[in-house]
Structures are given as structure tokens and as C-alpha cells.
């Protein structure tokens, strides 16, 4: 299974919310724009975090694909992990 995550830089507006959900996979630059450190996700844990980041991005800039097809983000990947 090849799951790939990338940030579309044309959509990213520097909210940096992705870094809250996927802190070890995303680098934030001095203006808040994110960049994925390693696009290929090898663990299920990393895939879960990337999907949460994708669901949380207000601009839909975090794109996750599996075998080249976009993975829909939403209900299966709740971002309210604290339960509130």
C-alpha cells in the first residue's frame, strides 16, 4: 500500500493547524506555511495523523492519496481527539 501525503502550496494559507495533528510529519516555515517532511507514509499511525491533518486544514491544502487516488477526509477521521 502506498499512501502519500502532500501540502498543496497554492492552497496553504499558513494556519499551521496541520502541525498540531501531524507534528512529526510537517515542518512549518517562518510564515506558518507547511511542508511535508516525508511524503510517503509507512505506518498506520502516520496515515491516521495525516488524515486528521487533512480534515483539520481550513483550506483543504493537505492531500492524502492511496495508490494515486485521493482519500476522502471527514467523518472517519475526527479531529476532536480530546473528546470535546
Amino acid at each position: 500500500m502506498t499512501t502519500v501525503v502532500r501540502i498543496d502550496p497554492t492552497l496553504c494559507r499558513g494556519h499551521a493547524i496541520c502541525a498540531l495533528y501531524f507534528s512529526d510529519g510537517v515542518e512549518i516555515d517562518q510564515w506558518g506555511f507547511g511542508r511535508v517532511v516525508e511524503p510517503t507514509l509507512t505506518t498506520r499511525r502516520a496515515v491516521r495523523k495525516a488524515l486528521r491533518a487533512a480534515a483539520a486544514c481550513p483550506n483543504g491544502a493537505v492531500v492524502v492519496t492511496e495508490h494515486g487516488e485521493a482519500v476522502p477526509v471527514g467523518a472517519d477521521h475526527p479531529t476532536d481527539t480530546a473528546g470535546w
Binding site: 502550496p9 496553504c12 499558513g14 510564515w31 506555511f33
Partner: peptide
């Protein structure tokens, strides 16, 4: 003028 880092950097 599309990508933030390019616009700012």
C-alpha cells in the same frame, strides 16, 4: 503569487 513561501520569501 500562489504559494505563500514564494510570495513572502
Amino acid at each position: 503569487g500562489q504559494c505563500g513561501t514564494c510570495v513572502a520569501g
